[in-house]
Measured scan of single mutants.
Amino acid sequence: GPMASDKRPRTAFTAEQLQRLKAEFQTNRYLTEQRRQSLAQELGLNESQIKIWFQNKRAK
């Protein structure tokens, strides 16, 4: 629909990254900035991508 703007492409996470994020989520529903930074480095992701993933996951 018209609401779907092309400005922010959805990140396609790899299965491996998703597995890691899910495991982290089961341990911590809320990430500290430090955890998020190390996860971002570990997974080669953007911190904001991880932050948003957690927000979306909590919203469900």
Rank of each mutant, 00 (worst) to 15 (best):
K57G: 06
Q19Y: 06
N56A: 14
Q34R: 06
Q49Y: 13
Q55K: 13
E33C: 09
N56M: 11
L21Y: 00
E33S: 11
F54D: 01
L31N: 02
Q37A: 14
I52C: 14
T11A: 09
L18K: 06
Q26H: 11
S38K: 12
T27L: 12
L39K: 00
T27C: 14
A15V: 11
P2W: 01
F13C: 04
S5G: 13
A4K: 04
F54E: 02
S48Y: 13
K7C: 15
A15M: 07
S48C: 15
A4Q: 15
P2V: 04
Q26F: 07
K51C: 13
A12M: 09
T11R: 08
G1E: 14
T14I: 02
L43T: 06
Y30S: 07
Q55F: 08
Q17M: 05
L43V: 04
K60Q: 10
M3D: 15
Q41A: 12
N28I: 04
E33L: 08
K57A: 13
F54T: 01
Q34V: 11
A4C: 15
T27Q: 12
L39Q: 00
S38N: 11
E42V: 05
P2I: 06
A12K: 14
W53N: 01
G44N: 10
M3N: 15
A40D: 00
A59F: 08
A4I: 07
Q19N: 11
F54V: 02
R58W: 07
L39N: 00
R36N: 09
Q26R: 12
R35I: 05
K7F: 11
S5A: 05
A15C: 13
R36M: 13
Y30R: 07
N56Q: 12
P9Y: 05
R35A: 10
Q19K: 11
Q41C: 06
E33M: 11
S48P: 04
L18G: 03
Q26P: 01
K51F: 13
Q34A: 09
A4L: 13
P2D: 15
Q55N: 07
A40Y: 01
F25I: 04
E24G: 01
T14P: 02
R29Q: 14
W53L: 03
R35P: 02
K60G: 12
T11F: 12
A4Y: 15
S48F: 12
Q55V: 07
I50V: 08
Q17G: 02
W53A: 02
F13E: 02
W53G: 00
G44D: 07
L18P: 00
E47K: 04
R29V: 05
N28V: 03
F25A: 02
L39D: 00
L21C: 01
E16Y: 10
T14G: 03
K60T: 09
S38M: 10
K7T: 14
K57W: 09
I52E: 14
Q49H: 07
F54A: 01
K57F: 08
Q41Y: 10
T27M: 11
Q55I: 11
T27V: 10
K51Q: 13
P9W: 04
L18W: 05
A12L: 13
T27G: 07
G44P: 00
E16C: 07
L45D: 00
L18A: 05
Q41I: 14
K57I: 07
G1D: 15
R29M: 07
R8I: 15
R36Q: 10
R35M: 11
E42R: 02
Q55G: 05
I50M: 02
S38H: 08
G1I: 04
L39P: 00
L45I: 10
N56V: 14
W53K: 00
L18H: 06
Q19L: 12
L18F: 06
E33Q: 13
E33H: 11
R29Y: 05
R20W: 03
Q49K: 06
R29D: 08
Q19P: 01
Q17E: 03
L39G: 00
T11H: 08
S48W: 14
T27R: 13
T11E: 13
W53H: 02
E24M: 03
T11M: 11
K51A: 14
W53E: 01
Q55Y: 13
M3R: 15
M3F: 02
F54R: 00
T11L: 12
Y30Q: 08
W53R: 01
T32V: 03
N46M: 09
K22A: 10
S38R: 11
E33R: 12
Q26D: 07
